[in-house]
């Protein structure tokens, strides 16, 4: 078991192998993720019961919660990739960070926007300086810093190392930000708002939510593979294996 995992890990570092395998996986991931998103949206928007307190407005949960949760997961996975890059100098980790950062930033933005649209009818305001909102905003700023750093170095290897350093420093700092915003928040306003209250959600609402979370995660997997392939093809366009695979001669 360990040996197969180790083999898989070593194979993952090879661009030709990844290019071949990802080409086979992408159609399935794409079809599955999009159909899951469509099913969960229809289920969530039309068939799940109306909320007793919030009315129909709560249905934005089916976009809001998956987007926010996937944006955090992407950042943590990027920091693992950053550690892998700094320790083993695995080029694939640099590709991973570069191609996943825009996707993570996009989902953080979707999470912030859908939260604002949800907040307007329920809280009566677009934005509250609540602990969760503020730390999500800081997460968005970290993503922007990572994306901005990509273009400042001429050599690809230096840029990857710099971005890995930033990602790791960011992941060290993120819990501190979260905690300090929590303390700051409690001074100014009593903690009266709980955003999801997932424990109290009924199973008829929970099921489409879980489906949509699964769909969004698969969607990130799908788009991540696509953009990693694009990144690999720009980096390796002059290599022999790539010319053989891609038929552009």
């Amino acid at each position: 078991m360990f040996q197969t995992l180790k083999n898989f890990y070593h194979k993952l570092g090879s661009f030709p192998w990844f290019y071949k395998i990802s080409g086979k996986v992408i159609p399935f991931a794409g079809v599955l993720s999009i159909s899951l998103i469509v099913i969960s949206s229809i289920w969530g928007l039309f068939f799940s019961p109306t909320d007793a307190v919030q009315g129909d407005v709560y249905r934005i949960i089916y976009f809001h919660v998956p987007a926010v949760s996937v944006s955090q997961v992407i950042y943590y996975s990027m920091s693992i990739a950053a550690a892998v890059f700094l320790i083993w100098r695995m080029k694939m980790a640099g590709v991973y960070i570069k191609s996943l950062a825009p996707i993570g930033a996009a989902f953080t933005f979707i999470g912030l926007m859908s939260g604002a649209i949800w907040g307007q009818p329920t809280w009566g305001t677009w934005w509250v300086w609540d602990a969760r909102l503020t730390s999500t905003l800081v997460l968005f700023l970290f993503y922007l810093a990572i994306i901005g750093m990509q273009s400042t170095f001429a050599s690809r290897k230096s840029a990857d190392t710099a971005v890995s350093i930033i990602t790791l420093v960011g992941v060290v700092n993120l819990p501190i930000v979260k905690k300090s915003v929590d303390w700051w928040n409690t001074l100014h306003q009593p903690a009266s708002i709980s955003i999801t209250g997932e424990s109290s959600i009924s199973s008829e609402m929970l099921l489409p939510l879980l489906l949509s979370i699964l769909g969004i995660y698969l969607f990130v997997f799908f788009t991540g593979l696509l953009s990693m392939r694009a990144e690999i093809s720009t980096r390796e366009q002059n290599k022999d294996w790539f010319k053989k695979v891609s038929n552009y001669n």
Binding site: V138, L141, L144, V177
Partner: peptide
């Protein structure tokens, strides 16, 4: 990180980190 470059990346990195 931003040596020799006149870009926004330095402040963009430093200010969110200083939030706590």
């Amino acid at each position: 990180l931003s040596l020799g470059k006149n870009s926004i990346t330095g402040p963009a990195l430093m200010l969110p980190l200083s939030l706590p």
